[in-house]
Design a protein around this nucleic acid. Structure first.
Lengths: 127, 127
DNA sequence: CTGGGTAAATGCACCCTACACATACCTCGC
DNA sequence: GCGAGGTATGTGTAGGGTGCATTTACCCAG
């Protein structure tokens, strides 16, 4: 109510993390939205949002990172199958590099946090 | 130009990551904004934004996570010194738990990425 | 023929972020 | 004593991502 959602609870996946995840999944092989949706939790997206994902896919298609075409399904409605482009693969590499940095930063945060948590009240002197 | 900034370049620190960073730095000892600003890069904030940080500090103060008071500096203008509250410490713990999960998710992403990158064109079969 | 799983998409409000800009203090050198 | 530059804290604002609700449509099983 009075407190902003930033105080509601640690939300925290990286910004735009959905994009590299989709690119990675597509790098493992062509797929369609609904299938990708089910694989997202394995990469950290606990409750993946269909809306956002479809938007993200279409956006990346407009940017030339992925291609898509309609394909009939033997078991259900037709699906739009996505495939990675050369440019999309390059973006994946760039993202991976960036995420490696973030991973490192989080590692430093966590070790520093652990150190601070293990040192209850001491060392509170400061210039 | 025509491409949205999401395509500009992997930006990617976790959402609201600034908050836990400030809480951690304050857990190591009371400090003031300008000083915190200089320590943020060590936690991953390459080009820390003063505006955002001061806003974040004030917001957390309103939520009771930090306290502040004015203090004279021997070398410059007066500074607002911040200190962690009990509630702020609890939030830090919560954030750390959440960030540990994110760290793990990124780890899984990166190993999966490495595996995919090492397997050039093979295994593209899919149901 | 109706319910439920499959499949894709839009609308929208909220808020975070990045960037620019403003203000004021203090010290040092000229 | 005056201006430059470092210290220190703030405000304004545009733009975009996220989460949530809602819609449409296909297909098969009961």
């Amino acid at each position: 109510m009075s407190v902003p959602p930033s105080a509601q609870g640690p939300s925290g996946l990286p910004r735009n993390y959905l994009r590299p995840c989709l690119l990675l999944l597509l790098a493992e092989g062509p797929s369609h939205g609904y299938d990708l949706l089910e694989q997202l939790p394995a990469l950290g997206h606990e409750r993946a949002d269909p809306g956002g994902m479809y938007r993200s896919l279409r956006a990346m298609e407009e940017e030339g990172l992925v291609r898509s075409w309609w394909e009939d399904s033997p078991t259900g409605p037709a699906r739009r199958t996505y495939d990675l482009t050369e440019e999309g693969l390059e973006w994946l590499h760039a993202w991976a590099g960036s995420l490696r940095l973030v991973h490192g930063a989080l590692g430093r945060f966590l070790t520093r946090y652990t150190a601070a948590a293990d040192e209850p009240v001491r060392g509170r002197a400061r210039r």
